[in-house]
Amino acid sequence: MKILVCISKTPDTTAKIAFADNNTKFVTEGVQWIINPYDEWYALVKAIELKEADPSITIHLVNVGGADAEPIIRKALALGGDEAIRINAESNDSYYVAAQIAAVAKETNYDLIFTGKETIDYNGSSIGAMISEFLDQPFISHATAFSTEGSTAIITREIDGGEETDKINFPLIVSCQKGMAEQRIPNMKGIMSARTKPLKVVEPITIESLTSVVAFELPPAKAGVKLVDADNPAELVRLLHEEAKAI
């Protein structure tokens, strides 16, 4: 079985969010870059678990990004991918990114493609579904558990207000979230071997973008907290009822 895991580069969760050039550019100075947590903790680690159970599985990683994405690709290889493909392009348009990944995926006929449920910077939550449409394959979103039985996948996914368990034949695309796997830390052997694992760079296909980012904006600052004395919690209830009209 061949698995493709989509890996995106995002700012660290504690990164300061600031914009420059008239709010048109994200300030990257001092920002640490990480593998998007959903891609790393759930999608990649789940693929690694499947391979540990069945060593005949190969895991490929794909990233759409510039050369500055290579450190996080190497980290993903250190965790356990077999080889990586970097599609040499920068874009914020989900349609463009998904089209690039689909073009690469078509060449190898993967049985399974994993993505994270969303990136923590753009919060688009659309790449997985778009890839499945480009490939005309089924898509299961928000998966919380995954196992295989021959040529069938058994997947539990979140639905609004509960969960559902589905059986579905390969090939398919799955977006992963909490529950799929537990976060891991790369070990020394992984880090050493990642240096020599193949990282192939391919040029993007020509395809138009459908959207573009015009500007950013920070939310307005909070007015400040109104503190109520701990001896008089009833006052808090009064304020929530009469002033905030929240209860």
């Binding site: 348009d93 989900s94 349609y95 998904a98 969303e118 919060n123 688009g124 939550s125 659309s126 790449i127 997985g128 579904a129 778009m130 499945s132 449409e133 480009f134 898509f139 979103s141 928000h142 996914r157 979140e158 639905i159 609004d160 459908l210 959207t211």
Partner: peptide, 24 residues
């Protein structure tokens, strides 16, 4: 709606219709 169903369908429709999507 940008819920679990919208997140699974809207992007597929975006590709089918070549229609730009803004989610959230």
């Amino acid at each position: 709606s940008n819920n679990t169903i919208g997140k699974a369908v809207a992007p597929r429709l975006s590709v089918k219709l070549k229609a730009g999507l803004v989610s959230g």
